[in-house]
Write a protein that binds this DNA or RNA. Structure first.
Length: 293
DNA sequence: AACAATGACAACCGCCTGGCG
DNA sequence: ACGCCAGGCGGTTGTCATTGT
């Protein structure tokens, strides 16, 4: 609709990547590093759009990518983070090392949103669905469960090119600090359906501004701000594990911290649901925002 | 065995933001 | 202040595999 494509598609290869293309891209990036995506295809001898190259590298070829086998713990974490952040896939991915936003987005759309619906929870709002809807979902689940039983038995990773499946040992995920990611205060983001607010709070600068750039997979934060909004206390953005609101805890590295934070969030949410109290609304916004930095 | 329906996920698309001249 | 460009993001589509009839 009126907008020119990011690059001329004439003569460019599209669709699934071939092993040869993967090799060319990997070799080029190993030799010259990431970046300059627009000119990269030409230099690397690829008949691909730069965007396509970037996507392929970011989502599949990077050496630190962990494919498939999303563990139940990761499931749980994704659901919780989604309830806090909405469809901010890159932020959610930032908490799951080796996972990409695309993978998590796909996993959410194909598995988790359905699962939540089947459990009677609205995947967008994370609130309980009304009974009839929940029942209807249950009914649908029963209809399909027979067909799905065999499918979900084995956790597999699939390589598009050789189509082989392999077992991967489940790993207990460690919750990491978010990778520095550009963002706009989601409180004013029009895209986020699951997390809306009538107020606009700006962060002033992105995480990249704070740490001097670096993009995905690197860099640190330059600020360590504590917010106290009358009851909820949040630590805002610091690479130091001691101040990581997800990882850190009073006794150091207790996994229950996330649960505590989540509980706090839910309580704030409930307060708002019941009273529409402005102060609580601000608390909730501050809390969610603290997770973004 | 053939076909349809569905699931899974890789890839694409358009929009947005920040940096820079 | 403005426009252009590169990079990044989230939504959507396309394609292939699997399952059901």
């Amino acid at each position: 609709m009126g907008r020119a494509p990011c690059c001329s598609k004439v003569g460019l290869h599209r669709g699934p990547w071939t092993p040869r293309e993967d090799t060319l891209l990997t070799k080029y990036i190993e030799a010259h590093g990431e970046g300059q995506w627009r000119s990269l295809p030409k230099k690397a001898g690829l008949l691909r759009c730069g965007k396509s190259c970037r996507l392929r590298w970011m989502n599949y070829l990077r050496p630190d990518i962990k494919r498939g086998n999303i563990t139940p713990d990761e499931d749980d974490l994704i659901i919780r983070l989604h309830s806090l952040l909405g469809n901010r896939w890159s932020l959610i991915a930032g908490r799951l090392p080796g996972r990409t936003d695309n993978e998590i987005k796909n996993y959410w759309n194909t598995h988790l949103s359905k699962r939540l619906r089947n459990e009677g929870t609205d995947p967008n709002t994370h609130k309980k669905l009304s009974e009839p809807i929940a029942r209807e979902n249950k009914r649908r689940k029963n209809q399909r469960s027979k067909s799905n039983n065999n499918k979900k038995e084995m956790v597999m990773t699939k390589d598009k090119n050789n189509k082989t499946a392999q077992h991967v040992e489940p790993q207990k995920p460690k919750v990491h600090l978010p990778k520095p990611t550009r963002f706009t205060s989601f409180l004013s983001l029009p895209r986020n359906d699951s997390f809306t607010s009538s107020t606009t709070v700006t962060t002033g600068s992105s995480s990249q501004d704070l740490n001097g750039g670096g993009g995905r997979g690197g860099g640190g934060f330059g600020v360590n701000t504590w917010c106290n909004n009358g009851g909820l206390v949040f630590c805002v953005g610091d690479e130091d594990q001691d101040h990581d609101p997800i990882n850190s805890s009073a006794d150091g590295g207790d996994d229950h911290t996330l649960e505590n934070l989540y509980e706090e969030y839910l309580q704030a949410l409930l307060k708002i649901d019941h009273h529409h109290d402005h102060q609580n609304q601000l608390e909730l916004e501050s809390f969610a925002e603290s997770l973004l930095i």
